[in-house]
Design a protein around this nucleic acid. Structure first.
Length: 556
RNA sequence: UCCGGGGUCGUUCAAUGGCAGGACAGCGGUUUUUGGUGCCGCCUAUAGAGGUUCGAAUCCUCUCCCCGGAACCA
């Protein structure tokens, strides 16, 4: 078991504690988790969620789920529902859902306030011109010719923007900040744009929408947020966040924005936009495709929620850009699953093994433990006959020194069954081994020899007669909520090509045919990547997901 | 080019003026009816150069490198 990490950095906690002890915010702590409902949550969000909710809980404060829904073009209630559901699974059930769109009226009124104070103006130029005038790094900005409009004219124009008198993109409301500021965010940022998209909650009642910068801090302030935690790329927005708030009559103390490094992992992508592209382009089957690092996909693959929490608290929170190795996450998953996963046998690349001294037609049944880590998990019945499937990699004609598995003349154990000794093998014209011949020792029933002799290797196997073929749709049986009965047509229709390829021809022990949904199993010593033990440890990894993740990363 | 944020074992996170430590990865051993698990051991780091100090990863100066920032995205 991986020990807890009391030393894990969390500078956010330190800052909040300092504020709290000094009585800033009157000892109050309030945070928020503010996703835009334009995609599904992924492992990177889990880090933010544990931070946001964790800090609030630690200091006796509250953390709200607030949807940052200020862009009607990309958002949908489908995402709202999925995010709430995932959040619940992660361990933070919310009873109250907040939306930035609920504050549109208040935010609008504050915009008028800024106009009246001479701190905002309507600009008639298009976005290209505005962008050009903003200048560049180390380059001066140019003030808009509309910057000097009177308060009355601005107010009139802004109200007509809201009333829908102008076309999309015809005018914007801009903050009158500082066109020479070294920070581009302060060079008169856009506060409102005209957009006639249908909003998932406010429908068509608004044609102007606040931008992120002119909505986020305002929403925080309305809710009474004390510490607004966001990722590093917003650090240059903080002066703007503060600038807006300083000019507004706030109902609470002015919130404080704190930036932290987002989670990145090797072999995969933690960017909602890139994931959305993969889903939209059909590169993957959907947001819950097991190749994705979305919460949905992780869930479907059997990742325990606790393993994700443990991982998140272990890695801590800092400002260093870093990319954690996927192995670290997996170590938490294994740590958890090793104690709970039922062991099963399956053969991914079958090779026929014939027991030449097996009584013709005889079938024997063995009771094999479900989990050596936990006797309470009981045992299951496994049938054996004289013809078995073993892993192709478990037999070698010319075995190298450190190879302990089957080779001519060697005795090994078939897990839970008998000792067998290889006597012979058959190869085809190309030299490919097509059949291995063995004799078994009836005295070793159950897998131990009365004379105490040892074998170097224990191999997994399935009875040819009793095994089931992965073609009956194992993948779906284990990963989907439904357990289909008879499969008709091509059972691989709903699988991605890579999974098809990996599962084609696999032979499974009968007990896998009725695995209960959501039950994670661990294969006994086998895998697609026979040269690398790690790769085939747990079932959900045997389909080569790490490689899939890497492929996904390349294609996004 | 300007502004901001960063730089400690292979990776990641500690150590905040006092013996550079953990985890993951790797390597070796051991246990084992999974080449899994468990257990034991080993390996490797303060970006560079100066300075302050009895003492520097930590404080100061300069240099180098990485990331972010000029959407009517968030």
């Amino acid at each position: 078991m991986i020990p807890p990490s009391p030393g894990a950095a969390n500078f956010v906690r330190d800052l909040v504690r300092a504020d709290n002890e000094q009585g800033v915010f009157g000892g109050r702590v309030q945070t928020r988790f503010p996703p835009e409902p334009n995609g599904y949550l992924h492992i990177g969000h889990a880090k933010a969620i544990h931070l946001d909710f964790g800090i609030a809980a630690e200091f006796g404060g509250i953390c709200n789920l607030r949807f940052d829904d200020t862009n009607p073009d990309t958002e949908d209630t489908e995402y709202v529902d999925a995010i709430v559901d995932d959040l619940d699974w992660i361990g933070y059930a919310v009873d109250k859902i907040l939306y930035a769109s609920d504050y549109f009226e208040q935010i609008y009124e504050w915009a008028e306030l800024l106009i009246e104070a001479g701190r905002a103006y309507v600009d008639d130029q298009d976005s290209e011109t505005i962008s050009l005038q903003r200048g560049g790094y180390g380059q001066p900005g140019i003030e808009s010719p509309f910057r000097g409009r009177s308060v009355d004219e601005n107010l009139d124009l802004f109200r007509r923007m809201r009333a829908g008198e102008f076309d999309d993109g015809a005018r914007v409301l801009r903050a009158k900040a500082d066109m020479q500021h070294e920070n581009m965010q302060l060079r008169d940022p856009v506060m409102y744009r005209i957009r006639r998209g249908h909003h998932h909650r406010t429908g068509d009642s608004w044609v102007i929408y606040p931008t992120y910068d002119w909505a986020h801090g305002q929403s925080d302030a309305i809710e009474g947020v004390t510490h607004s935690l966001c990722s590093l790329e917003f650090d240059s927005h903080r002066p703007l966040y503060d600038w807006y708030l300083e000019h507004l009559p706030l109902p609470f103390e002015q919130p404080r924005q704190i930036e932290f490094a987002r989670l990145e992992l090797t072999h995969t992508v933690t960017s909602k936009r890139r994931l959305a592209t993969l889903v939209a382009d059909g590169v993957v089957d959907g947001w819950d495709d097991p190749r994705l690092p979305t919460i949905r996909a992780l869930r479907r693959r059997g990742y325990p929620s606790a393993a994700i929490s443990d991982f998140c608290s272990f890695i801590g929170v800092g400002k260093t850009n870093s990319r954690h190795q996927i192995e670290l996450l997996e170590s938490f998953v294994r740590d958890s699953l090793n104690r709970t996963a039922l062991r099963r046998m399956a053969v991914l690349r079958p090779l026929k093994l014939v027991i030449t001294n097996w009584p013709a037609g005889q079938v024997e049944h063995f009771s094999i433990q479900n989990n050596p880590e936990n006797a309470d998990d009981g045992s299951r019945d496994v049938a054996m006959s004289g013809e078995l499937w073993i892993e192709r990699d478990d037999f070698m004609v010319d075995a190298p020194p450190k190879y302990f598995r089957l080779t001519p003349g060697r005795e090994v154990r078939l897990r839970g069954a008998y000792f067998v000794t290889c006597t012979d093998y058959r190869a085809d014209a190309d030299g490919t081994v097509v059949e291995v011949h063995c004799t078994y020792d009836p005295e070793t029933k159950g897998g131990s020899a009365p004379d105490g002799r040892k074998v170097k290797s224990t191999m997994h196997w399935v009875s040819a007669e009793h095994s089931i073929d992965a073609r009956v749709g194992l993948y779906e049986r284990l990963f989907s909520a439904e357990v289909p009965g008879e499969t008709t047509g091509d059972p691989f229709d709903d699988l991605n090509p890579r999974s098809r390829e990996l599962l084609d021809g696999c032979k499974l022990e009968a007990a896998l045919g009725h695995a209960s949904p959501g039950q994670v199993v661990q294969f006994e010593r086998l895998g697609y990547f026979a040269h690398d033990v790690r790769e085939h440890l747990l079932f959900h990894r045997t389909v080569g997901l790490r490689d899939e993740w890497a492929n996904i990363q390349k294609r996004s």
